[in-house]
Design a protein around this nucleic acid. Structure first.
Lengths: 347, 347
DNA sequence: CGATTTCCTGCAATCGTTTGCATATTTTAC
DNA sequence: GTAAAATATGCAAACGATTGCAGGAAATCG
């Protein structure tokens, strides 16, 4: 087995394999492609395979990609890599995808639309086979861009209003109802809601869930019992909660659209000289990492991020393999996890 | 301006640009490459550029990559994407890299060496221009693999024992001294250490820092005052702390090699019927996201993850551009952030 | 004004695969 | 035993860029 080159142990190409096996390039190519292998006689296949791994051949994905226009690469765009909520989702996506032979390239989309758009363009240029978006707004121009280029798209965690594309989300509406029901059962009647941004599906649906749950319980609430936070951030939550407390003196509980918002509420409550859960109960949403370690440990709604990621990856693979299949929307059931940020109202 | 194809708005290639500008392919290529542009007459350049963006030309990175053997792609391997400590580092790396025209592909290396090795192989096959590793052990075979393939490597947060490759870390030793000094100044004398895994540089150096700081203060400590956690995880921290408390009844403070370990210690302390900081002070390390929101808010050592990421990216870019430049090791200064998990020992 | 040098631009090979088509070769059918 | 069908392989053209080399035009020089 003569080493191919005196230089470093770089690139043994298909040509080398073919030459060493005494067959044509194209035959080697086919023998090495599981999907084409049946075209070649078994004996020849096994010889080529043997030679290939004796030589340590590895297919060059770049060259292959140039020819086939697909890359075995999928892009994942999140609004904020540093946000712990997305970590397990990303992890699960890459896991499942990599098991199927895909590499993922995750990018931080940020808030800026132009940057997002540029990002998408760049990923498309790199021939990603698909894009999973965790950033999407309810009516998102980026999404149209993607669809114009007709590449596989799946939405995760957040969805858009049209039904043009596959997605996996939790039942946000139901999740919030769970939260409100929990509070009501503890005895709360004066409940406030820190809503997420209305242009994001989670914000919209959770608010809706809040309203429905209150109505179903026959509870009245004023307009001022709902304050929309500017963003899913702690500071925004703090501001919203402060306003809630000021405008609704009799409030005994707050249902927040998100854990970070809930943590912001903790601050506002302390700043108002109150205490959670003694004066105000708080329930969050998402059960993000460390939600159990804050003080008080946060009662929240678990959305199963890993399952979400796995499903998203599966949907993506399906879509890549069958670009014109039906769009699928999987919605997972959320569950309540009770910790100590909620308690019966005092009295 | 005739649209090139009746089909979708896909790929206008260099050929199209050349044809439309009435020049040769190669001329167009040069005109569009900032580094070669000077070879072409200014008038021609501007015509070509004009045509290029009238047609909406975008260079195909795949084709370019095939020819040039470089990809404008860099890989980032972390031990655990879901670990919040790495989030800001990753975010900072991608930011800086993307500003320089590089895309990043983030992969979760996990614990398994074979999987890591396969991952590296795959990234190399994809022609990444460089790899930043946050996973590395003090003596890591993966690293050798990378160096054999001679691609640019930079280590972040953790480093290896040899000086073969550029890295950016914090002064882990100094960080731990900061922590111990803080405890000593509060009046603690009986201090325990939850060490990180010894095969990781941070674990090793922080332990060393602990020992040096204690010695410098003239404090004695028994062997049993240091217990090594099996991994940087909460459960491991809990077990280690439990042992520490059992073996050292007079302990009044614990310096943990990492925030997650510190949080584990919280549990062990509560389980022992003690309270932090009243009975036992705890100081963590890293100041990871939400360290301020746990109870009690964690006194810890800030390592400047964003700066670390930025520097790593810069080092990477430098290395790619000058593969044989000197290896650089930047070490950042940690700082103490005081919260309420530390207090003077009760008498 | 002829000889050099400098400046531009074109030619064509190359990067490593994949794949439609054509050409053996073998098998099956009649 | 021959025609038809099936099977196995080779041929060569892509995919879309980059770049060493060479040659023509223009500029510089003596």
């Amino acid at each position: 087995m003569p080493p191919r080159r005196t230089s470093s142990l770089q690139s043994v190409t298909l040509r080398d394999v073919a030459k060493s096996s005494g067959v044509h390039l194209s035959t080697a190519s086919r023998a090495l492609d599981p999907a084409k292998r049946h075209l070649i006689a078994d004996a020849v296949v096994s010889k080529i395979v043997a030679v290939a791994d004796r030589l340590g051949y590895r297919r060059d994905p770049v060259a292959a990609s140039l020819r086939t226009r697909r890359s075995k690469l999928v892009g994942v765009i999140v609004p904020d890599i540093a946000n712990p909520v997305f970590s397990p989702i990303i992890a699960a996506i890459t896991e499942t995808l990599s098991a199927a032979g895909y590499s993922t390239i995750v990018a931080d989309g940020g808030q800026d639309r132009k940057r997002q758009s540029a990002l998408v363009g760049e990923l498309i240029a790199r021939r990603v086979d698909g894009l999973v978006l965790a950033t999407v707004r309810r009516d998102d121009p980026i999404l149209k861009e993607c669809l114009n280029e007709d590449l596989a798209v799946v939405l995760v965690n957040r969805t858009d209003d049209s039904d043009r594309v596959s997605s996996v989300v939790t039942d946000d509406n139901a999740g919030m109802r769970l939260a409100v029901d929990h509070l009501v059962e503890l005895g709360h009647r004066q409940i406030g809601h820190i809503a997420g941004p209305a242009h994001i599906s989670t914000g919209h649906l959770r608010r809706q869930g809040f309203e429905e749950a209150m109505a179903a319980r026959g509870l009245k609430y004023s307009e001022r019992a709902i304050v929309e936070a500017a963003a899913y951030e702690r500071e925004a939550g703090e501001m919203a909660a402060a306003e809630l407390l000021k405008e609704n003196p009799k409030l005994t509980a707050i249902a927040a659209a998100n854990d970070l918002l809930a943590l912001g509420a903790y601050r506002a409550i302390a700043a108002a000289g109150l205490s959670c859960p003694r004066d105000i109960s708080v329930v969050g949403h998402n059960d993000m990492p460390l939600a159990d370690m804050v003080e008080p440990p946060l009662t929240t709604i678990r959305i199963g991020p890993r399952e979400m990621g796995h499903d998203a990856a599966r949907l993506m693979i399906a879509r890549i393999q069958e670009p014109n299949g039906a769009v699928k929307r999987v919605v997972l059931s959320p569950s309540l996890v009770t910790r100590t940020s909620t308690a019966a109202p005092k009295q």
